[in-house]
Each structure stands twice: as structure tokens, then as C-alpha cells.
Amino acid sequence: MNNPFADPGARRDRLALLAYALAVLAATLVHDPRWLAGGLTVTLLLAGSGAGGLLSRVLRTVLPFNLAVSMGYLMLAWLRTEPPWQTLLLLNLRVLLLTAITFLFVRRVNLFRALGFSRSLTYLLGLAYSQALTFRRAHEDFRLALVSRSPRRPGLMDRYRVSAAAASWYLEKALAAARESAQALRSRGFFDA
């Protein structure tokens, strides 16, 4: 059997996985916004020429979540007459940093190679990856089907309905796929001691 530790690419990816795990741990334990901002700067520097694209993708991804949480926190702080800025800064920086680290890690590292030391983890990653690909394709089809069926620009309500139908479909498919995957793994002796 090949030794997965002998492959320099695998070694590099495994070190990156370890660094990623430590970075995520640090980002959740550090409570000083200056350190978090520093971490974000380092992450963007590591992204090199792709820093702009990475930051833009991170902002687009976290904006709805961060905006909703920040607004809720602002209202709470206003009712309690507490200054909210320190907490808001901390919260938003932490989410930005964690998302940026994750996007950069996924872009740079071959996860299959990084987890090659464990048969179980590779199996689980394979299952998650195949489901993610299926759902990405389905998500695109839901979006395109609405465009295709709409002689006029679809309204907000139509978009909500498509999102709800898609979410329900994903849930149903995810449950069915998880059940089937578990059966397949059981059949192949994955759960045997």
C-alpha cells in the first residue's frame, strides 16, 4: 500500500489542514479586534493577487447574516442603553476572518489529499462532496427554470417561492441521500468494528 505521508503534495496539504484548524481555533478564542483585523490582513496577503476577489466573495457571502445579526444586536443594545460598537466590531471581524480563512483553504488545498491518512474521513468527505455537487447543479437548475419560465422579470414573491421549493427539495433529497449513503456504508462494512 502507498504511504500517504511519502507524497510531498499530501504532506503540504496535511500541514495546511493543521494550520487551518489552528487558525479557526485561534479566531474563536481571540477577543481583541486588533488581532482579528491582523489575521484578516494576513489572510488577504496570503491570497496574493486573488485578495480582491476573495474579499468580495466573503463580503457577499456574510452580508445577509452579519447585517441581520448586527441589526438585532443594535436594537438590543439600544434598549439596554449599552454601547454596542466593541461587540459589533468583534462579531463582524470574526465572521469575516473565519469565512476568508475557509475560502482560502478550500481554494488552495486538495481536501481529499489532506484527509488521505484516514479511510473514514475520506469516505465522509466523498459523500459530502458528491452531495454538494448534486445540490449545486440542482440550485442552478431551479434558478434557470425560473428565468426560462418568466417572460417578465420574476417578482420577489416568485423568488421566495422558488427558494422555498428548492430548500424543501434539498432537505428531502439530503435525507434520502443520507439514508442511502448510510445503507451503502453499512453494506460495505464501514460500521463494523
Partner: peptide, 20 residues
């Protein structure tokens, strides 16, 4: 868009993608 979408229609392979 209005002219084309009224004249050309596509049935997707996954019918669930079209129902909402």
C-alpha cells in the same frame, strides 16, 4: 425577453426544478 420566452419553452430534466 418577453417575445422569446413567450415563444420558446424548455422542459428541464428534473421537473422539481420547475415547480414552485
Amino acid at each position: 425577453n418577453r417575445r422569446f420566452r413567450g415563444r420558446a419553452a424548455l422542459l428541464f430534466q428534473n421537473p422539481d426544478a420547475m415547480l414552485f
